[in-house]
């Protein structure tokens, strides 16, 4: 859980069979490298941040730390998630800070051979291109690998 998180592209490419956690966001399959994930929690109501953009749900108390919770779905430009008890918050560490990501549900842990990762084919959405660092085929479904750095460091505008 406290594992040092490495978001090194190199490592993703050359490591033999890395483990990824796949989950669904707005009906689509996404995944994150298992070492990037600190913990997975059940959704519980968060404290709303006034004037926050739509994809920032609010803040949550993670053992004394105040961490922001993002709605991944809204972040990807998909419809906003109606958060409920069934949903999960995936706590990741980005830029040394814990951040919670709301997902519909966690599916499974999959083992991926780096060679099987395909580049994201060019599509019309710039956001998608930025946020997805590659795709893989798993059990005949397409699983998108999230580029965590791009998702979180993408400028979050706070309305004045």
């Amino acid at each position: 859980m406290q594992a040092e998180v490495k978001q090194n592209d190199q490592e993703v490419k050359h490591a033999e069979h890395s483990e990824f956690v796949s989950f669904t966001v707005a009906g689509q399959a996404f995944c994150l490298k298992i070492t990037q994930i600190r913990e997975i929690r059940r959704w519980s109501p968060v404290t709303i941040l006034p004037h926050a953009p739509a994809d920032v749900l609010g803040v949550m108390n993670l053992r004394g730390a105040v961490i922001p919770i993002y709605d991944l779905s809204a972040r990807f430009g998909l419809q906003q998630t109606e958060a409920s008890e069934r949903n999960v918050v995936i706590v990741v560490s980005v830029h040394g800070k814990p951040v919670g990501l709301l997902a519909e549900s966690v599916s499974e842990i999959i083992s991926i051979n780096p060679d099987d990762i395909q580049d994201t084919p060019p599509v019309d959405s710039r956001n998608t291109m930025e946020y997805i660092q590659g795709i893989i085929s798993h059990d005949d479904t397409m699983v998108r690998i999230i580029n965590l750095d791009a998702v979180i460091s993408a400028p979050e505008q706070v309305m004045p």
Partner: peptide
Amino acid sequence: IKSLDGVCGEIPGVAAATILGDGKIAM
């Protein structure tokens, strides 16, 4: 007092956050 620095940008009207007895965060 829990600073919101690094959690989100500056929010007009909000100075910081705190954690209440029920474990919830309050602005």
